[in-house]
C-alpha cells in the first residue's frame, strides 16, 4: 500500500504525520485528499465502536463543542443539526446518532481557511442522543443532546 493511503486510513493520530509528510513533499495533496471512506467506522454498530474507529475513544465532554438542534423532531427522516467547535486547532467534527443501527453519520475535516462548523440534516431512526466529536491536536472533545422523534399528522 502506498504511503499516501496508509496515512489517510490511520485516522486521528496521523494528522501531524500527514502534515509533516506533505511538507517534506512525500505526498501530493490531490492524492492524499482523494476520496477515502472509513468503511469500518461507518459499519460500527454501537457508539463506542464507532468512536474507537475514528480514534476518539478518549473523547471528553466539553462545553467548547456546540450542538444546536430541535429537541423534538416532527419526523425522523430529517433532523437538522448545527455543530461548531471553539476548541483551538479543531481539525474535524464527527456526528454520531447513538441509537441508529450504524451510529456514525459523518465526519468533516477542516483545512486551512475553513471554520470548524457544519450544519446538516440527519436521519434519526428513534429518539436518541446525537453526539458530536471535535478533534484538535490529536485529542477529542464531545457534546451530546437528545432528540425525541415523533410522527406528526394523520399519516397524510
Amino acid at each position: 500500500m502506498d504511503e499516501g493511503r496508509r496515512f489517510v486510513l490511520r485516522g486521528a493520530g496521523a494528522t501531524s504525520a500527514l502534515a509533516a509528510a506533505l511538507a517534506a513533499g512525500l505526498l501530493r495533496p490531490e492524492r492524499v485528499l482523494a476520496a477515502t471512506w472509513n468503511k469500518a467506522a461507518f459499519a460500527a454498530k454501537d457508539p463506542a465502536d464507532a468512536l474507537k474507529s475514528i480514534g476518539a475513544s478518549d473523547a471528553v465532554d466539553s462545553s467548547d463543542v456546540m450542538l444546536d438542534l430541535p429537541e423534538i423532531a416532527e419526523n425522523g427522516a430529517v433532523v437538522p443539526i448545527e455543530v461548531s467547535s471553539k476548541v483551538p486547532g479543531t481539525t474535524s467534527i464527527a456526528v454520531l446518532i447513538e441509537k441508529n443501527p450504524f451510529p456514525l453519520a459523518g465526519q468533516f475535516t477542516f483545512m486551512e481557511g475553513a471554520l470548524p462548523y457544519v450544519k446538516l440534516n440527519v436521519k434519526v431512526g428513534q429518539s436518541s442522543r446525537i453526539r458530536v466529536v471535535a478533534e484538535a491536536g490529536g485529542k477529542h472533545y464531545s457534546t451530546a443532546k437528545e432528540v425525541k422523534v415523533t410522527i406528526g399528522g394523520c399519516g397524510g
Partner: peptide, 23 residues
C-alpha cells in the same frame, strides 16, 4: 483550494443540505 472534506453515510437525509463556513 480544498477547505472541507466530508465523509458521510446513508444516515444523512435524502436530498442533503449542508452549510459550511470559511474564514
Amino acid at each position: 483550494k480544498t477547505v472541507v472534506e466530508g465523509q458521510i453515510s446513508q444516515a444523512i437525509s435524502r436530498n442533503p443540505v449542508f452549510s459550511f463556513r470559511v474564514k
